[in-house]
Amino acid sequence: MNIGYYPGCALHGSSNDCEQSLRACLSALDVQLGEIKDWICCGATAAHSLNHKLSLALPARNLAVAERDGFKQLFAPCPLCSMQLLKAKKAVADERVRKELSEIVEADVRGESEVLNLIQLFEKIGVDRLKPAVKAPLESITAACYYGCLLTRPPDVVHFDDFEQPSSMESIVAALGAKTVEWNYKTECCGAGMTMCNEDIVLELAHKILSNAAEHGANCLVVACPMCHVNLDMKQAAVERRFGKKLGMVVYYLSDLVGLALGLSAEQLGINRHFVTQA
């Protein structure tokens, strides 16, 4: 498998633990990632909030660059990046828009490559291939799989899983020998990119998510989004201070669990670099 890789700013920034985890895990599975050259930021929340056209143009540029590099599949681990890529892909289905965007980004945007999120990457690898590779079944783990907002939304853009009752992450986690819980905040938002500028909201939402997972008997959260990880892991101490209660909920990237099950160490996966670690 040679899959185009669009890391996005987060994975090259403060969420580099996510990238470490991914790379360790994928090399153990013998999956190569080809980082697309000259990728640029997708514009994130700021672009779609402040300049709609720009929010399509920036990911369109990345799509075009990936296609120029010959990738039929493009893996974007950050759901916001992948949603923006898919929005651009949807927009260029209209020839009029495709022409305009191609001119803006100085490259032919075809919008033909398949955009994959983190869960889809593991689905591509296949549960059939994961299962036999499991060396250390995760028997002690009871996970609450957290999809957040943009993995499944908006459904007419991302076309991924059941957008109200998703279960794709559970299937993968179950293949690793871990248990999962049914809980209520699977697709509720954690506040996303408001970490810095609207902390109150992030803390409130993160608190609800972390508490609900605990109430339903989970001993950890699994995420497939670097922003969710920031809000739930890095901000967890702040949540605990604000709401005056101890949560101690470990937050894993999906790739962390895959890696652990494959027998990789917490250090290899960068789990030791999380804020909340096993008590």
Partner: peptide, 22 residues
């Protein structure tokens, strides 16, 4: 103001750098 300023500065940042400089 915080939200507005953050989004503006974010956009200026990628405008300048192409990628985000945290």
């Amino acid at each position: 103001y915080f939200v507005v300023a953050f989004q503006k500065i974010f956009l200026e940042n990628i405008h300048r750098n192409g990628r985000l400089n945290e």
